[in-house]
Structures are given as structure tokens and as C-alpha cells.
Design a binder for these strands. Structure first.
Lengths: 350, 350
DNA sequence: CTGAAAGCGCTTACAG
DNA sequence: CTGAAAGCGCTTACAG
């Protein structure tokens, strides 16, 4: 490393022949009235000395860290998209991001919050996992703005969520309206909020009649398990003509199983997924999927944190975003000409 | 927010009837000799008051932030995997992560480094993009440990890279040894270091004879462009029987084009990609791909930063990791029984 | 083992 | 417009 002494505001002040107060004002408070002459001397001197203000000291003196904490369960495609949305909006707002991955552990999540608090961050965004326990503190106890992305058992928190029930309803409607009369819902765990809602939307649409029946297969968490479940289904000569998978991962596993069993998608079996993976458009047949606006959710969360800092948390409301169904080949749309101009079905706003 | 006054170390000291020095020693320096009685009083009092040490103050007093800065070009699957590796290792080492996404802009990268420096971070990890300009500072000028992940034009920096040339050589060898005599290399930009190396490995293997020829198609950056390029190739009755794509995204686009053109993979055209996307195993046919150990690279970078803090940067060396080729159906391996137990070809170590 | 006090490098009333 | 000085909440030689 280098041996030159770090130069501080005092060095600049001395060299420029002004007080440290003046240096601080010129460098940190653009609007503060300082004589043009002093201003120039400070600017020139700071530049000449290569002065880099110690943000740590500033942060300590002002107790504004210009940093928000972000806690996420994992960094898969969904959360990476969310994080990108958070980061983009934060940068726009001049905020840095302290990132922590907490897994599925409520314990680690609380520890992360401890860190955020101890570090005096300006706010925090807690991205909920599939199944989180309630946060152990109320928003008031936190003392800094906190926004939750995704469903969370606690009440009182401001949240950014997505209308999973409605999206699932629309996806099911899409399948029913194409003539499918027995549809399988392939899912992970019906108690996890997002998946509970997707199940609810599925059932809600089926309950509306037209003679379509549903069948729920739970306990399927990844491609390999979906592959096995669907392979079994085919072996048992299922009467279903469509599968609504709770995630694209499950949908891809299902499609692999169908292909290996010699069945065609969608003529023998239609498939729809959730998440709209980047690759889903380029799988063959391409996969119809519900796009979760994870990046928009993340960006919205940052907005809300910023708002809470100024307006006060009490005048804020949680927000619910609308997912969109991207219709592709796997559900029975065979418009090859429109292959690259993907067709989009936007859910009407509630 | 709450209106209770923040309680500080002084409050704890007063309540416990000891000096702030004693409180500090009990709470922050486990080994420091303090009478058991005083220790207990401090512990109990701190707990009772709900004292949360102000890490900002500590950090300022000690000038150790226990935080490393991470700058990444984007947050796609590759970098998300890398970030997960960084985060995991950092957490193990008790380090927090300040994350910045800088896009393809050298300017923003420098700004991010300015931030890291101004915030007095303990170290930084710069993840290079496909084509970065040189860093504007030398490691010495930075003054804190810095490790680069990926190729970078600067010399003098410690880097963690992957042997792209060798991986590409092996992938090409795999295709040649299966009897392919004309192979297409589908790539983005031959001047970008990683892709230049992949091209080099491709050419190196072809130069070894056996009569296999190569054809390079440049300027293909995503699935859609790969789709178009391959569609054109097919229309022009290419004599190639295999495609080596520089990324899985390109490979997936290529496979979609082949499927839509009525060609079979791998019997009509074999395909191999780079990156080993999570979904590549479950596409049909499954995609043979070179796995880039992005998470291991990230973890290694954290290790190196930690090492530099203690050992001094001068006794450290850059590290080169070995990618692995995951052989699946798309390159002509039809072992359906081994579908879920993916076959792995580990590159021999250099 | 313990405590009084200096110091970390800024910001910001306050007085001029 | 300017500066001397207090203060942010800890840590840590130093003296006892």
C-alpha cells in the first residue's frame, strides 16, 4: 500500500488558508454562501492535494449513512432481478446498498436486521422468502424505514407484493378457454403464501364451471421433482390435457418429462408456468408464463423507503403490482411468425 | 418512528456503575481482562437497556469498516452466481458487502471505486465485464486490497480468472472426437478477452488436424440474434454438423432456430454452449455446456482480499480456475438413463 | 483490573 | 461571509 499520509480536511484548510468550516461548506454544501475567492482556493487546493473526504466521518457526524440494507433469501433468477431493480432505483436516489443473503433462516434474517440497525442505515428492504416466520420487531421498534417485498405474516409493515391469485386465475382461464377440461396444478407447498394464492386463483377459476376439473400435485420443488412427477402422471395415463406449474422451473421439468415420454406440447399436453424465466421464450416449444415484475417490485420498495424518510411512514400504503401472462407455444398458441415478437396479455388492472 | 432516546455506551456505563472503557472492553474485546463482577454487570445492564452499539462510531474510531465493496457490470445469471459466492465467503469472514452495479461504463466503475475509497472500506472486488477499459488507478494508488474477478487490461492487479482457452479447446475436442468435420463458432465479439480466448481454444484444437474445419460467426449477442444467425445458416444449407456457441444464451437461440427449421439436435446438428445455465440441463434435448465456476471465483476473490489485509498484497498471486464441461444430449450423448445424474467431464488440471 | 481523556475527521449551531 | 469549538459515540494508549 502507499505510505503517504492520508490528507484530511484540516490539511486542505491549512493549505488553502481558510478554516475547516469553510472547506466543509465549499465541498459539502453547494448552496452555503462562501466568497467566490475562498471557494476557488478550496477547490483548487483540494484537487491539488488529491483530497478524498472521509465519508465515514461525515456519516458519523451527520448520522446519515446514505445506505439502505437489503436482505434476501437467496440469489436466484427471481431475486437477482429484484436486486437489480433495487440497485437501479437506489443509485438514482444516491443510496448505496448493503446486501445480505439470509437463506431460509428467520434467525439470520433477524441478525441481518441487527446489522442494519447497528450500522445506522437509513432504511432497509426485507425480501421475503417462500415461507418466512413473522419479523420479531414491529416497524416502530426498528426506528428506520423498512419495506417488505413479498408476502409477510406481520401486519403493520409496508409491503410490495404481486397479485398472485389474479395472475393464476388468468393463467387458468387461458387454459380453460382453450378447451382443457382437466388441468393439473403442479406446486411446491400450498401453505407458502405466494403458492397458496396461486392455488386459490386456480381453484377460483375452476369453480366457475364450464366443466373443467383440477388436480393438485404438491411437494414439487425443482425441475427434477417435476420431471419425476410428470413422468409418473404419464405412466398412469392421466386424463389431464394441461399443466399449470407454479414456477417455470417446474414447468421446464414437466416439459422435459413430456418430451422424453414422447408426448407433444401443447397438442398432447399444454403447459403454463410462473416467473417468465429469460430462457422460457427460447425453449421449444416456448413456454407460456406469468411474468413476475420482480425488478419493478424492488424499485418500488426503494421509492417507498425514500418516501418514508421524508413523508413519514404513516401516510404510506402498501402496493400490489399486477403480473402479466406471456402467451407462447406451450399453451397452444402456434403463431410462429410472432415468435420473436412475443405476445403479451396484460392483466386488466383491478 | 419511536421517540425514545437512543441509548449509548455512556448510558450503559452510568447504569452499570463502571466507566465507558470497561463497557467497551466487555462488549467489544472478549479477551481483555475485566473482573467477572464488572463483566456481568455490564452484560446485564446492556441487555436490560436494549443497548445496540453504534457500529458507525466504532468503525470511525477504529477505521475498520468490516465491509468490502463489490462492483459488477450487470446482475445476470452469471454475475448473480458470482455474487452469491462473494456473499457467502464474506459472511463467513464477518464482512458485509456494499454492492454497486456499474453497467458497461468505465466511468461508473471509477465512481464506484471512489465511493468505496471514500467510505474507507476494507477492500474491494471488481468484477470485470466483457470489455472493460483499464482501471485508472494502480493497486498502490487504491491503498486498500483490491481483487479483480475476470480478465482486466491492467497489470499489477491480483485477478481470479478462468481458463477459457482450455475449456473451449476441450469443448471443441469433444465435438471433433464425435466425428464433426465442420464446426461453427457462434460468438459475440472476438476482441473481448473471454471470447477471444474461447475463439483461441476453438482454433487451437482445429489446427491439430483430423480434417475438421471451423467457421466463425461474430456479432451474435443474445438468443434472438443467435436464432436469426442460425436460421440463415440453415437456409443457406450449411455443411456444418455442429455449433459451438460462446454462451448458453446463444446456444438456446440456436437450438430454437434448429427446432423451428425442422432439424434435430444432435443428429442433424450438435450444439455446445458456455455458462451451464441452470435450465440447460432441462431443455430438450439437454444442452452440453461448459460450466463457469462463477461462485467459486467470487469466493476466491474474497479469500484473496482477506489474505491481502493480513499478508500484504505482495506475497499473493492471481489464480486461474478450471471450468468443467457438462456433457448432455445436445452434443450427441443419448444416455437417457443418466438424465438426472448428469455426466460431468472434468478438465484435467493444467 | 480500572478509568480519565484524547482522538478518529467530519458538520454545524453559534458568535462575530 | 468566516472561524473557533463542540459534538457525533465509540476505542485505546496511558497512568494508575
Amino acid at each position: 500500500m502507499d505510505t503517504r499520509k492520508k490528507i484530511g480536511i484540516r490539511d486542505v484548510a491549512k493549505a488553502a488558508g481558510v478554516s475547516v468550516a469553510t472547506v466543509s461548506r465549499v465541498l459539502a454544501k453547494a448552496e452555503y454562501p462562501v466568497s467566490e475567492e475562498a471557494r476557488q482556493r478550496v477547490l483548487v487546493t483540494a484537487e491539488a492535494l488529491g483530497y478524498v473526504p472521509n465519508l465515514l466521518a461525515k456519516t458519523f457526524a451527520t448520522s446519515r449513512t446514505d445506505t439502505i440494507g437489503v436482505a434476501m433469501p437467496v440469489l436466484n433468477a427471481y431475486y437477482a432481478k429484484m436486486l437489480a431493480g433495487i440497485e437501479g432505483e437506489a443509485t438514482k436516489a444516491g443510496l448505496s446498498i448493503l446486501l445480505t443473503i439470509v437463506g431460509a433462516s428467520d434467525e439470520r434474517r433477524e441478525k441481518a436486521i441487527d446489522q442494519f440497525l447497528a450500522r445506522q442505515l437509513d432504511g432497509m428492504i426485507i425480501c421475503s422468502g417462500a415461507k418466512d416466520g413473522p419479523l420479531r420487531r414491529t416497524p416502530d421498534q426498528l426506528g428506520i424505514p423498512a419495506v417488505i417485498v413479498g408476502q409477510q405474516p406481520n401486519t403493520g409493515y409496508i409491503t410490495v407484493t404481486v397479485d398472485n391469485r389474479r395472475a393464476s386465475y388468468e393463467a387458468t382461464d387461458h387454459l380453460v378457454s382453450r378447451g382443457n377440461r382437466h388441468i393439473i396444478f403442479l406446486t411446491s407447498n400450498n401453505e407458502w403464501p405466494d403458492f397458496r394464492d396461486r392455488l386459490a386463483g386456480f381453484q377460483e377459476r375452476l369453480a366457475e364451471g364450464e366443466g373443467a376439473t383440477g388436480e393438485v400435485i404438491e411437494g414439487v420443488f425443482d425441475e427434477a421433482q417435476a420431471y419425476r412427477a410428470v413422468t409418473k402422471l404419464v405412466a398412469e395415463k392421466t386424463t389431464a390435457t394441461a399443466i399449470l406449474a407454479a414456477t417455470d422451473r417446474q414447468a421446464l421439468g414437466a416439459m422435459a418429462a413430456l418430451a422424453d415420454a414422447g408426448l407433444r406440447v401443447p397438442s398432447d399436453m399444454a403447459v403454463v408456468g410462473f416467473d417468465n424465466y429469460h430462457t422460457s421464450e427460447f425453449v421449444r416449444p416456448s413456454l407460456t408464463s406469468v411474468d413476475m415484475p420482480a425488478d419493478a417490485m424492488g424499485a418500488k420498495a426503494v421509492e417507498l423507503v425514500c418516501m418514508a424518510k421524508t413523508a413519514g411512514a404513516d401516510q404510506m400504503a402498501s402496493v400490489v403490482l399486477e403480473p402479466r401472462l406471456f402467451i407462447r407455444q406451450s399453451s397452444g398458441s402456434f403463431d410462429n411468425a410472432a415468435l420473436l415478437a412475443q405476445s403479451v396479455k396484460s392483466l386488466p388492472s383491478a
